[in-house]
């Protein structure tokens, strides 16, 4: 698997946060450019709603700015801390959403596919998102963190505040449930084989 966790060095993020806290006006822009895309993508995949994902991302980033002066380097990775905040905010949103039917959830915006990627990829991503939306909340978070965000089990455990074994269980069950949810969409997915 292409593990692309931690696209930026954690030390770089902590250093930028320290520079921000010290009043460096350029640090916020650099740090936001590094972490915001990952947090927004995660929130969008988990919530399946563009507006809610934007709210959660902005809220999480505001908490980061607020805690910056008290940040103690070395205790936690900035991105892990942020993922954790985003994950908790997503859970809050999902619980408030309660019994809202899946069909009432707004279709996610296409993740900006380029012309080269074509309609097939957009269709597949929509099908994946629709299948993700059917998973229980924690399974969905674990699957997104593991297979889309590309994080390791230890980091996911820290983010979800559970043990590594629980992460393995969640991701395994989530992946199986995802396959089941995708069974009925093989035409949309455009795979040649007749099974998912």
């Amino acid at each position: 698997m292409n593990m692309h966790a931690g696209n930026t060095e954690p030390d770089t993020e902590a250093e930028l946060l320290a520079r921000y806290a010290a009043g460096d006006p350029a640090a916020a822009r650099l740090l936001a450019a590094q972490v915001t895309p990952r947090m927004f993508a995660h929130a969008l995949r988990v919530l399946g709603d563009q507006a809610e994902a934007e709210d959660v991302t902005q809220d999480a980033m505001m908490r980061l700015w607020r805690i910056a002066p008290e940040w103690r380097a070395g205790e936690a990775k900035v991105s892990t801390w942020l993922y954790r905040v985003v994950a908790n905010l997503c859970i809050d949103r999902l619980r408030k959403r309660g019994s809202v039917a899946l069909e009432d959830i707004a279709e996610p915006a296409d993740p900006a596919p380029s012309a080269m990627q074509g309609m097939q990829q957009a269709t597949r991503l929509d099908a994946l998102q629709a299948a993700l939306n059917t998973l229980p909340d924690r399974q969905r978070q674990a699957v997104v963190l593991r297979h889309i965000d590309g994080l390791g089990n230890a980091q996911i455990a820290a983010i979800l505040d559970i043990g590594v074994e629980a992460v393995e269980s969640l991701t395994a069950r989530g992946k199986r449930a995802l396959k089941t949810a995708l069974e009925g969409q093989k035409d949309a997915l455009g795979f040649e084989d007749d099974t998912i």
Binding site: A41, P111, L125, L128, I148
Partner: peptide
């Protein structure tokens, strides 16, 4: 599918 999602982040 996962790879497609990773390669086209929103």
């Amino acid at each position: 599918l996962f790879a497609a999602a990773r390669s086209a982040p929103p």
